[in-house]
Amino acid sequence: MTFKERVETIKSGTLRALRMEVLQVNLGYRCNMSCKHCHVQAGPGREEIMDKGNIDAVITALSENGFKSIDITGGAPELNPLFRYLVKKAKDAGRHVAVRTNLTIFFEDGMEDLPEFYRENSVEVIVSLPYYLEDNVDRVRGKGTFQKSIKALQRLNEHGYGRASEEAVLHLVYNPQGAFLPPAQLSLEEEYRKELSAKFGISFNRLYVFANMPVGRFRDFLLRTGNMEKYMERLRSSFNPETIEGIMCRQIINVGWDGRLYDCDFNQMTGLGVTDGKPAHIKEFDFAGLSEREINVDEHCYACTAGQGST
């Protein structure tokens, strides 16, 4: 059964946006890393990057509509030269700002002050840390990544991140290191907290547990290793209807580096743009027209509805 048919068995009609609260922006596919599980296939060689015209259109859309927050992603979003400009404008507009960072970017030239910048602007920082052990992390993200990540987390802690302040929120993200489903979020969070605190004195707010999307570099891995069929079957057989109500795509609109609009970052990578509630470009943004749009779905969407869901 296709994902679209599966959704229709539990919901009358198609999947539609519910409340557009988050403007998610992909600032470009350039990254200082080339992680094996990256759905963006980001890396140092990627040239796609959002220009000033589209960034200003993002700021206008954010300021003039009912968004509560902006969720900035990439690639490494910090590598866009206009990254700090966007963060400051978003704060000026009174919006909550969340940034998805890879942590190792803190050690690149000109990026050393990122923890200070984040703290000054009360940015919610969401970081990738696929596990709490070195071998597991380095195998997926490259040798030396774990140690750098630990140092970066310690620096964030020094700036008050990951403790009680609502102005310095630090969330970690776990991804499975292969073709298997993630564990329960709460039990793994407990493990992370225990291990990171005992070994490195690190604290954080929450751990998010995401399933790997069968798109981008992870899709290549599945195909290359003959795991695709089994992985998709595992996702399908773990479909949890209770995840549909709060699924991420119903609450966000995603903007690609070139200004095109998508229902989520994963649809962006598969080229599945918004087709209902056009226009589908940030420069012609129509909040009302998009707020109840039909969500475009495909087979990769099973990764967001497997088990506890990935949102």
Binding site: L133, N136, Y174, P176, G178, F180, P182, P183, E191
Partner: peptide, 10 residues
């Protein structure tokens, strides 16, 4: 598989 999906490592 079960151990890995419960968040355990090698």
């Amino acid at each position: 598989r079960s151990c890995i999906e419960e968040g355990m490592s090698l």
